[in-house]
């Protein structure tokens, strides 16, 4: 085993369904260490990066992510994050981060009322995070979304502070990088697709980089997120 391998800890809630995709991307595509962490565990297995994967944790009962937040493992994830640990929430994982208060805002039902499953384009608004250091600022990534509740909403004050502090990491855009309403798959405020915490160690994104990490799957742009994470951990 090479010394430069980092360990991804993929949390598994009842109803998670992208846990194996995230594990596959980390372990087999990126050739790093990866372990599943069952939601009842209170130990994060010494992971360098915690992944909250997509899916329908607890059947999306009450609100998306609302119940997963009370899983035993989440107490540890919150502690890990508050100590500066790296946490990425993808899709349902983003919703869990919002409910857990690790990121601000909520996800409303898509404005179309439909579940949207398709490739979208994302403009990289901030390439100096530990999640995007291998991307180019202003660059465009092609990554799929698959969600029914991805319509990012927060109060005007919160959105302003996200914008002012450069915490909007990704915005839905056209293939050429133009940010338009047509490119917005769910009605998110300011086309927001991903945000990072003020401290920079917690990111939530609705699109699925783990589903776009190999060209056979239609795009390998999602790999850049994993590469960024690996480099940031190795450099620390």
């Amino acid at each position: 085993m090479s010394l430069s391998k980092i360990k991804f800890g993929v949390v598994v809630f009842p109803g998670s369904n992208c846990d194996h995709d995230a594990y596959h991307a980390a372990k087999h595509v990126m050739e790093q260490d990866a372990e599943f962490i069952w939601h009842k565990e209170t130990d994060l297995h010494g992971a360098d990066v915690i992944v909250l994967p997509g899916g329908f944790s607890y059947g999306d009962y009450l609100r998306t992510g609302a119940i997963a937040r009370f899983s035993p493992v989440m107490q540890e994830v919150v502690r890990f994050a508050n100590n500066g640990g790296t946490v990425i929430g993808i899709c349902n994982g983003f919703q869990v981060l919002l409910e857990a208060g690790l990121l601000p805002g909520v996800m409303l039902r898509n404005r179309s009322l439909r579940f949207v499953c398709k490739f979208v384009h994302l403009k990289v608004e901030n390439a100096s995070t530990r999640f995007t250091s291998e991307c180019q600022k202003g660059g465009v990534l092609k990554i799929p979304v698959a969600h029914g509740d991805g319509n990012y909403f927060a109060s005007d004050d919160v959105v302003k502070s996200l914008e002012d502090n450069n915490q909007v990491v990704f915005r839905y855009c056209e293939a050429d990088g133009n940010i338009t309403d047509e490119a917005n798959p769910n009605g998110s405020l300011h086309n927001i697709a991903g945000i990072v915490s003020a401290e920079g160690n917690v990111m939530g994104m609705m699109p699925h980089p783990e589903r776009a990490s190999e060209l056979e799957l239609g795009s390998a742009d999602g790999k850049k997120i994993f590469e960024s994470l690996i480099h940031s951990v190795v450099l620390v």
């Binding site: 009450l62 609100r63 609302a66």
Partner: peptide, 8 residues
């Protein structure tokens, strides 16, 4: 703490 999310 659980039943309502005050943001929405």
């Amino acid at each position: 703490k659980l039943l309502a999310n005050p943001v929405m």
